[in-house]
Simulated assay, not measured.
Amino acid sequence: MDDRTGTATEVWHGLRALVLERHDRRKQVSEALGMSFNRIKALRRIAAQPHTLRSLAEYMVIDAPYATLIVDDLAKRGLVERTANPADRRSKLVHITPRGKAAADEANRILDTPPEPLLALPPEDLAALDRIVNRLLD
């Protein structure tokens, strides 16, 4: 392994530890909303735009029966509803309800809250990190 690959690997390990271990918001958002993170992930996706069960399953990389189970639970909670799909009468579209939109907004608020160590960085470090992250996302 060359120096560049080794350094990139170490940076990747650090980023994973930062986001997925030390400051993982999934548990916090699950506890706040009283449901699994998979249900929250589906809810946030449906809040962004209506989905068929098939498109939701594809996005979440799950099988259709599990997507149905998730949507059934969200519907029982009053967070989503199914309506006829005008583009395909054989399928239904899953839409967010006002209660579901509020829950998705709360999930986004929790997930988007930066961890304290990030907030504590000096402005020039934040600017450099922002520049690097945007470059990685391009």
Rank of each mutant, 00 (worst) to 15 (best):
T68E: 07
V61A: 10
R39N: 09
I62K: 09
I70P: 02
I40H: 01
V94Q: 04
I96P: 00
G100A: 07
N38G: 07
D2E: 07
S91Q: 09
G100N: 03
L126D: 00
T7H: 11
A107W: 00
T7W: 12
E31V: 12
R22N: 10
Q49K: 15
I46C: 03
T52I: 08
K101W: 06
R135G: 12
E106R: 14
T52Y: 05
K41N: 14
K92L: 01
R4Y: 13
P98E: 08
L33N: 08
A48E: 15
A32E: 14
A104K: 05
L93C: 06
V71H: 05
P117G: 04
L118Q: 00
E124D: 15
W12V: 10
I96R: 01
G14H: 09
I132P: 03
R25I: 02
T113A: 10
M60W: 13
A64D: 07
D3E: 14
S30G: 14
R26S: 11
Y59W: 12
L33Q: 09
D105G: 02
N38D: 12
R90C: 01
V133W: 15
E81G: 07
L20E: 12
E116L: 13
T52Q: 05
P115D: 04
A127C: 05
R109K: 05
L121A: 06
Q49G: 06
E124V: 12
K41P: 00
A42W: 06
P50L: 03
E116M: 10
D24Y: 09
R131A: 13
A17W: 03
I70G: 06
A8Y: 11
D63S: 10
L53K: 09
L121Y: 10
E116S: 10
A47M: 09
A128G: 06
L93I: 09
D63L: 05
R82H: 08
K92R: 12
L121F: 10
I110E: 02
A84C: 00
I62M: 11
R131T: 13
D138R: 15
K92G: 01
K76E: 15
L33W: 07
E116D: 14
D88A: 08
I40M: 01
R25G: 03
L137H: 11
A87C: 00
A8G: 00
R26L: 02
L136T: 11
H51T: 05
T83W: 08
K101C: 00
L69T: 14
P86H: 04
T9C: 03
L74A: 08
D3W: 12
D24C: 07
S91W: 02
